[in-house]
């Protein structure tokens, strides 16, 4: 993956963040302004992307929705990621019985059907933007825990960790200095891939009435509001759908690029590839 292909997804993400931050300046309308007399207007005319079932401007809702969707996705990835990595590293570093039990617990959490967990969380904690994030993080942290666990095990087996342990360095220092640098790149790769997925999950929660609170717009809530109009008002779901697709695409490309750059296993191979012939270099995964 070369620099150019990494720039495009980066630019897309930056664009989204800008849209989210400056939503009030960019949106032509109040995203929550209901006008029942102007409901379900097709794109064009006064509303560039049409209006929804309550006469609200779809463009404005998509722009404001970027805020919520990015917030939910980033929040879920960060919370789940930090927690998952912490659990995975602890399990991997301690190893033995404790490590094994932690990892079985991770398996079981992974095994509880997503929506069951989601409904429980939303029902127990009450519905809110924050709880959607909590809910997604709660469901997804085991994925990070798994990769962090195996990366930690791998790092533990390496010479420099063994050496550091032999010199009597404190465990927390070894973990910070030697293990985390091995774990984080893998976790970041998983995180970028999860980013898009979280937006989709939020949409599914909205579909079941468990997403963000109305009238707040998120891509997911616009999409699920639009599903019953799929045959009659395509614009309701098409535009948030496109926004979502581009984000998932960008996040995935970035994830691939990040993996190629950061994965320690691959990093060591980069110099080899440089030395090789041009044909071989192209075959390298670096």
């Amino acid at each position: 993956m070369n620099r150019r292909t990494m720039l495009i997804p980066l630019a897309v993400l930056v664009m989204y963040v800008v849209a989210a931050v400056f939503a009030p300046l960019l949106a032509p309308d109040d995203p929550n302004a209901v006008t029942l007399a102007r409901r379900l207007l097709p794109p064009g005319g006064g509303h560039l992307l049409g209006t929804d079932a309550l006469g609200r401007d779809v463009l404005s809702r998509v722009i404001f929705g970027t805020r919520i969707s990015l917030l939910v996705a980033a929040g879920a990835v960060l919370t789940g990621g930090v927690f998952g990595v912490a659990v995975g590293v602890i399990a991997g570093w301690r190893g033995g019985r404790i490590g094994a039990v932690i990892m079985r617990l991770v398996d079981v959490v992974l095994s509880v059907p997503f929506f069951l967990l989601a409904i429980l969380v939303v029902a127990v904690l009450g519905p809110s933007l924050l709880n959607v994030v909590v809910c997604l993080a709660l469901v997804r942290w085991p994925r990070y825990a798994r990769v962090a666990h195996s990366a930690t095990l791998q790092a533990r087996g390496r010479g420099f960790v063994t050496a550091a342990t032999a010199t009597g360095a404190p465990a927390w220092w070894i973990v910070l200095r030697h293990v985390l640098p091995e774990v984080l790149p893998v976790a970041i790769v998983v995180g970028t891939l999860e980013l898009g997925l979280m937006v989709i999950y939020e949409a599914s929660l909205s579909f079941l009435g468990l997403g963000v609170q109305p009238p707040t717009a998120s891509w997911g809530s616009i999409l699920s509001d639009g599903q019953q109009y799929i045959a009659s008002a395509w614009w309701l779901a098409a535009f948030p759908g496109i926004a979502l697709f581009v984000l998932v695409l960008a996040a995935n490309l970035l994830g691939d690029a990040a993996r190629d750059r950061l994965d320690p296993a691959k990093r060591t191979e980069i110099p080899k590839a440089r030395r090789g012939t041009r044909r071989q270099a192209r075959r390298q995964p670096a």
């Binding site: 898009g196 997925l197 989709i200 949409a203 599914s204 579909f207 997911g220 999409l223 699920s224 599903q227 799929i230 779901a237 759908g241 979502l244 697709f245 984000l247 998932v248 695409l249 995935n252 192209r282 075959r283």
Partner: peptide, 27 residues
């Protein structure tokens, strides 16, 4: 890798992944 086949195929797979199931299903 790096050829047109990759560029053509990856987005196709991603479209599926980037659409919520209720949307794909109804379509």
């Amino acid at each position: 890798r790096g050829r047109w086949q990759e560029r053509a195929l990856m987005p196709v797979v991603l479209v599926g992944q980037a659409m919520p199931a209720f949307w794909t299903g109804l379509l």
